[in-house]
Design a protein around this nucleic acid. Structure first.
Lengths: 269, 269
DNA sequence: CGGATAGTTGAGTTATCTCAAATGCAGTGG
DNA sequence: CCACTGCATTTGAGATAACTCAACTATCCG
């Protein structure tokens, strides 16, 4: 009765892949089941295509006689898609957090974005085969893989979806612009503040976070990889944030105590 | 007879805009006319849509009874599109160099990419109104503005163009991924080396550069804005490059003496 | 309980920045 | 033609943000 949300979800959508292949389930009986495992994929583009079996409007995929993509569940840190892999299937997150990253030949790694439930790895992957980036589970993640061409065709034929696609592309571009500013021109504190604020904002829009407190599965190393910093330095900055009563972070829970203060940090430098 | 290429081009395509509004022409009689002012927009997506009056296949735009976009010529450093401006017209570079940048509320600026002849400001601008980024002339630049929706419709209807669009989107994503790695995870030297090598590569593919020597209109401040560094530091690194016989840079001409050496720099750190 | 992973803290190093002054170079007006 | 102005580049000295290394502690999970 304690590993509630996970098993509930699992029963309604049988898993294949990692878990079935022997990876141990992760949620311990002692910790409360994280809210991120409820199917909170409300804004998901794919959901509205009718291609997602989780929300079968019946017609679309049974018409085609295709076997619809099953939910796969991966434990934290398992990689969903390797950087060198080249696939016509787009991963779409159903629940949990994932990271998208590239790593340079010299081995240094940069996380490009975090995926939350309902997120496509990238809107661009409607246009090109999925490649060049690695996608990894951050928390326990459930996701499906949809065939690119099929997805694209459906989206292109539906004006409402096309406009959602446009919006998605715009958001990605904006995120990119801001990321460039972050990495190139903002102090370590500002980068971290912005990262945290963005995650809060995104979770809120998805209805996953209501108050100022969120489940926070990220390791400091991952924060470092996303901000272009060192894990040690991230730790020091987080300590400073805590000392200044900007956030409270313990266990796997992050609480924003002074959103305004964080925002000021971003503006300032 | 010395300001050849510019005036030749101008006669075939009457200018409106900045120059007409009183900006002084820039090419001095003493300096050789830079090759970048020939209409070298060979790979341009728009050129193949039939919407570009410079290469009127006749039909497309006269059919529509629209007045086709004239070439505009802007002197160096003039801004073509302001960050806060929101327009349904996509700037497309015909010749010269332009920069695309965003600046943070704190005033710090980050150049996101350089545009060369034949480049669209961004493929994304087929999907969203052009906004949030500033586009500025680096050298003297000639360009046209095409109506977004019209461009999009033509591209969408033509499979060949659609595949070019896909390719363009892919290249932009790859550029973004690499830029993130650069800004977040690479040394100043590696960033600068990569920037120079990329520009050479792009000019080569466009057929603008044949050997290892290119016209190079960028100021050190612009190199700094693109790499997330300081102009002073850029200067020091360039000096080091010169000292190590990696490049020769003087006047407005850049010569690559040791491409391999530069590449090694990138791999190394 | 014990091993592994993650986070914390301090000391010392280094890459990059800031400031400032000097030089060069191009365009302007006398 | 020349002095003058404004901008870009160069160079040096000192400051600082972020890094590396290393030891220590806490937490997780078997």
């Amino acid at each position: 009765m304690l590993k509630t949300s996970i098993s509930q979800y699992d029963t309604s959508a049988p898993q294949i892949g990692a878990l079935a292949q022997g990876a141990a389930p992760v949620a311990s009986a002692g910790s409360p089941a994280p809210s991120s495992f409820l199917p909170t994929c409300s804004g998901c583009l794919v959901r509205e295509t009718g291609l997602c079996p989780g929300f079968a409007l019946g017609k679309a995929q049974s018409d085609r006689g295709l076997n619809p993509p099953q939910v796969q569940v991966f434990p934290p840190r398992r990689t969903i898609l390797h950087q060198r892999e080249d696939t016509e299937f787009v991963p779409v997150i159903c629940s949990g957090w994932a990271s998208v990253s590239t790593t340079a030949p010299n081995g240094r790694k940069q996380i490009v974005s975090f995926l939350l439930s309902g997120d496509l790895a990238s809107m661009n992957y409607l246009f090109e085969p999925c490649a060049g980036r690695s996608v990894e589970a951050v928390s326990q993640v459930s996701f499906r893989r949809f065939p690119r061409a099929e997805l694209r065709d459906v989206v292109f034929k539906n004006p409402a979806l096309l406009s959602k696609l446009s919006q998605g592309l715009r958001e990605e571009r904006e995120r990119f612009d801001q990321a460039s500013l972050d990495l190139g021109r903002r102090s370590a504190e500002a980068r971290l503040a912005r990262l945290l604020l963005n995650l809060l904002e995104r979770l809120r829009r998805k209805g996953i976070a209501s108050d100022s407190s969120i489940d926070f599965p990220l390791r400091q190393q991952q924060l470092a990889d996303a901000t272009g910093l060192t894990a040690v330095h991230v730790c020091k900055i987080l300590s400073r944030f805590r000392a200044n009563k900007l956030v409270a972070l313990s266990g796997r829970r992050l609480t924003f105590l002074d959103t305004k203060g964080l925002q000021d940090l971003v503006e300032w430098d």
